[in-house]
Amino acid sequence: MDKRSEMHRREQRRYVIGYGGSLLLTGTVFTIAYVFGIETKGVYLAIAMLGLAQLVVQLVYFLHIDRRRSSREDLDLILFSVLVLLIIILGTVWIMGNLAVRMHTYPM
């Protein structure tokens, strides 16, 4: 077997691992939701964490973003965008939530 097809196989395995990992995480999320119900905050926290893990798995295995030097520029771009995003989302939720509490539309 020559080197190219060996590399091809390795990269293909990478995609399949990513797919398997994502399937597993998706299955776990829906199983948790089905078994425990989705009413409590603890269950939702678990679901959110698994969602986060799935994002990381797909970034690494599908989009090939990792800490290798060659993908560092992209990682910087992604991290900066995520920072902007977190400021937007958390800021919005914080301000609007605070406003709702002050307007007595939301129980403390």
Partner: peptide, 25 residues
């Protein structure tokens, strides 16, 4: 390929926040 993988990432956000988050909160 980049675009398509990106859409999958957004979808994970949607099921986590819109669907499960909606059902919880």
């Amino acid at each position: 390929a980049l675009f398509w993988h990106f859409l999958d990432l957004i979808w994970i956000g949607i099921i986590t926040i819109v669907y499960f988050g909606g059902l919880t909160y």
